[in-house]
C-alpha cells in the first residue's frame, strides 16, 4: 500500500490534489456554485479564445471543481479570457464562468504567475495610466507598452493613419475637477490594502 504513494502510473490522486481552501476561496470570491457545473462544454463550445488557450475553459472549471490549484492558476487561459461573456450567457447552470476566470486571474497575480507577460504588462500599464491621469492616456499607454513589452514596432504602422485623422492626442485629456486626485486616492488605498493583505 505504501508503494502506491510513489504512483508509478502517474494517475492523479484526487484526494491528495484537492486543495479545499482554494475551492472555497474561488467559490466565495466569485460567488458561484461551482458544484453545479456538469461539464457540458457549452462554455468551451462558444469561447472565441479556445484556439489560444492551453486548457479549454470547461476543463479550467473542472480543475477548480476538483481543487487542483496549481494547474488552474498557472495556466495561460485565464490570462487570455477577454470576458466576452459568451460562457456566462450560455451556461445552462447559471454559472458566471467569466467571473470565475476573473477570480482565477486575481489569484494567479497574487501567486506571482504571469505566463502571458504582455497581457499583464498591458493591464498594468493601463491602470498606471488611469492612476496617473484619472483617465486613460492612450498615446502614453501605447508608448509605455511598446517599450515594456519588447515589441516597440508592433503598432508603429498605425501612427500615420492616426495622426492624419487626428486620433492621436499627445497630451492626456484629464478630468477638469477633483477627479484626478480622487482616482489617485482610490489607487493608493487599493495598494495599501494589498500590502495589508500581505500579497503572496
Amino acid at each position: 500500500m505504501q508503494n502506491s504513494r510513489q504512483n508509478p502510473l502517474r494517475t492523479v490522486d484526487l484526494a491528495a490534489m484537492r486543495d479545499e481552501a482554494f475551492q472555497a476561496a474561488v467559490a466565495s470570491e466569485s460567488g458561484q456554485l461551482l458544484a453545479s457545473c456538469y461539464q457540458c462544454g457549452n462554455c468551451t463550445a462558444g469561447c472565441a479564445y479556445t484556439h489560444d488557450y492551453d486548457i479549454p475553459v470547461h476543463q479550467v472549471m473542472r480543475l477548480v471543481q476538483l481543487g487542483h490549484r496549481e494547474r488552474a492558476l498557472s495556466c495561460r487561459s485565464i490570462w487570455l479570457c477577454a470576458t466576452c461573456q459568451a460562457c456566462t450567457t450560455r451556461c445552462p447552470n447559471n454559472i458566471d464562468v467569466a467571473r470565475v476566470m476573473d477570480v482565477l486571474r486575481h489569484m494567479a497575480r497574487r501567486a506571482g504567475h504571469a505566463p502571458e507577460p504582455t497581457v499583464k504588462t498591458f493591464t498594468d500599464g493601463f491602470l498606471a495610466s488611469v492612476a496617473r491621469h484619472g483617465r486613460v492616456f492612450e498615446a502614453g499607454l501605447a508608448a509605455v507598452f511598446a517599450i515594456k513589452s519588447g515589441k516597440p514596432l508592433q503598432d508603429a504602422g498605425l501612427g500615420p493613419a492616426m495622426l492624419s485623422r487626428g486620433k492621436l492626442a499627445f497630451l492626456p485629456h484629464e478630468p477638469e475637477g477633483q477627479g484626478k486626485a480622487e482616482v489617485a486616492a482610490i489607487f493608493e488605498r487599493f495598494y495599501a490594502r494589498k500590502k495589508q493583505g500581505g500579497g503572496e
Binding site: 477577454a82 498591458f122 493591464t123 488611469v130 484619472g134 483617465r135 475637477g177 477627479g179 482616482v183
Partner: peptide, 13 residues
C-alpha cells in the same frame, strides 16, 4: 468631472 470607469483591465486585476 468624470474619470476612467476601470474599463476592461480593472476587473481582471
Amino acid at each position: 468631472d468624470w474619470t476612467c470607469c476601470g474599463s476592461t483591465p480593472a476587473h481582471t486585476v
